[in-house]
Simulated assay, not measured.
Amino acid sequence: MEKITNRDLLAGLINREEFIQALEKRIERCQRYGDNTALLFLDADRTPPDPHDKSCNDALNETHRLAAILQDNIRSRDLAAKIGHNNFALLLDNLDADQVEAKILALMERFDAAYLDSEDGSDKPAMSIGYNFIGPADSVTTLMSRRDEAVYRSEK
């Protein structure tokens, strides 16, 4: 039962509450041992579907598709979470900035490839990925508050 309550049932990834607990542990580890962890924020922007429209099923399928892409493209020691309606997060250990940027490009390529089936690409949501590294003075509050800034930087 505990595993179910720690997961987002639509995405199959850990939920925001479990992610916050994992982030707190990563912050402690980074501060204590000097470990290097990147925190990635992903926003899949899409107009909310009409509940009476069949696109609700499309939105559910999209959530599953994105969650699968994230889970299939991280290492076992990394962590993927669904932290909001169209918001996801990744914790990636022991990568430098070049490796994180390469990971972001690889995720974007896989995300684009997942939508090649659509004839005109109109069903593809706009994906933005931003990141920060966990620093020695960071807290969950400071890192989560920098989410919008990190995603905004990625859109430029």
Rank of each mutant, 00 (worst) to 15 (best):
M1S: 09
K3R: 12
K3V: 09
R7H: 06
D8L: 14
D8G: 10
D8H: 14
L10H: 05
A11S: 15
G12I: 10
R16Q: 11
E17I: 04
I20E: 11
Q21L: 12
A22V: 10
A22Y: 06
E24S: 12
R26W: 09
I27G: 03
R29Q: 10
Q31V: 07
D35G: 09
N36Q: 12
A38E: 01
L40A: 00
F41N: 07
A44V: 01
D45V: 00
P49W: 06
N57Y: 04
N61C: 02
E62M: 15
H64G: 08
L66M: 15
N73H: 15
R75Y: 10
S76F: 14
D78S: 05
D78R: 06
L79C: 07
L79K: 04
A80F: 02
A81D: 08
K82I: 01
N87E: 15
A89Q: 03
L90Q: 03
L90I: 02
L92W: 05
L92D: 01
N94D: 15
D96Y: 06
A97C: 11
D98G: 10
V100G: 02
K103F: 04
E109S: 11
A113P: 06
D117L: 10
P125F: 07
S128K: 07
G130R: 01
N132E: 15
I134Q: 07
D138L: 02
S145H: 12
E149M: 10
V151F: 05
